[in-house]
């Protein structure tokens, strides 16, 4: 029974399911580290997913589709930054506004420009000579499309930027004590603009990973709450890219496991199986939050002289 449950396909499915979470949550880590909560991630993902899908649908090029998602994500990040940093709007509320905008606009554009679900040729699975054919290991690690690898590659890059670069130091300073950072000559607004744009760009990429790499279809509300889970994963991961990676893998693994349990007909009510990833995430979140290093200035707008 154990062998039937813990198959190579479950682990491969885990990596696929984790991909959009990693992109979105690592991006959100940048944003939150600098003190800006972006609850609108889901809406940005939807817009990125649609932009990528429609571009591939119209041009046939996944590269141009990817670029479209990055640009749309960056623009929505810019809009979010303008609202949160320049206008200093309440971040939770404005985030919901961004989400609703993305939800509605992606649906409107989909209905107007495409009309009905169609499939496209997205990023193909990469065959890596010598690796893809290795039994079990090959199926788990070397049978994915380019964006799956890119997501995992992003984690050490993000960790390096946040922990080993001057820009990372500025991000952390702005998130912990913006007044002190400002006194040291750091342009708080500029840093926050950059992190929120990074978050938007990666959220657009997360959406693209769904619509032109993992699913190759688009439908209204395609992300189905995935962006909100990504925000929770940032807390789960204690505002570190590695923590976000572990959280994404855990959540996705439990999800893949429950699908496998359902598929092979293990007699567990499907309601319990589906609940499992969320219950485990909440439990982990409770323990993680006790030792969490939350950015002190998270959700607090910065006004010079306050």
């Amino acid at each position: 029974m154990i062998e039937e449950i813990f198959t190579a396909s479950v682990f491969a499915s885990t990596l696929r399911l984790a991909t959009p979470y990693i992109f979105a949550a690592v991006g959100e880590t940048f944003s939150q580290k600098s003190g800006v909560l972006n609850l609108g991630l889901e809406g940005v993902m939807l817009m990125g997913a649609f932009a990528a899908f429609y571009t591939v649908y119209a041009t046939g090029s996944v590269i141009i589709g990817l670029l479209a998602a990055l640009i749309v994500g960056a623009l929505m990040g810019l809009a979010t930054a303008f609202i949160s940093v320049t206008l200093q709007a309440e971040q939770g509320i404005s985030g919901i506004g961004i989400y609703l905008f993305g939800l509605g606009m992606s649906e409107l554009l989909f209905v107007r420009l495409i009309g009905t679900p169609v499939s496209i040729d997205g990023f193909p699975r990469l065959y890596i000579p010598g690796f893809s054919d290795i039994p079990v290991i090959g199926e788990i690690f070397f049978n994915h499309n380019l964006l799956v690898y890119a997501a995992f590659l992003l984690v050490p890059i993000a960790a390096f930027i946040l922990n080993r670069t001057t820009f990372g130091l500025m991000i952390r300073a702005v998130g912990q004590n913006p007044e002190a950072a400002d006194a040291m000559g750091v342009n708080v607004a500029r840093v926050r603009y950059m992190t929120v744009i990074i978050a938007g760009t990666l959220a657009g990429l997360a959406g693209a990973s769904l619509s032109i790499a993992l699913l190759n279809v688009f439908q209204q509300n395609l992300t189905s709450g995935l962006g909100f889970i990504a925000v929770a994963l940032v807390y789960f991961g204690r505002w570190t890219p590695l923590g976000v990676l572990l959280g994404s893998l855990l959540f996705s693994f439990v999800n893949a496991l429950q699908l496998q349990i359902g598929s092979i007909g293990v007699n567990i009510p499907s309601e319990f199986a589906v609940m499992a990833p969320y219950v485990i995430t909440i439990i982990a979140l409770v323990f993680a939050s006790k030792r969490a290093e939350k950015p002190t200035a998270l959700t607090k707008p910065f006004r010079r002289g306050d």
Binding site: L222, T223, L259, G262, S263, G265, S270
Partner: peptide, 21 residues
């Protein structure tokens, strides 16, 4: 093989459920 994913709209999860089958 039957999997109920407990959602009418979760396309990513439905996709992986089909992949598991």
């Amino acid at each position: 093989l039957v999997t109920y994913i407990q959602s009418f709209s979760d396309v990513p999860l439905a996709t992986e459920a089909a992949a598991a089958h």
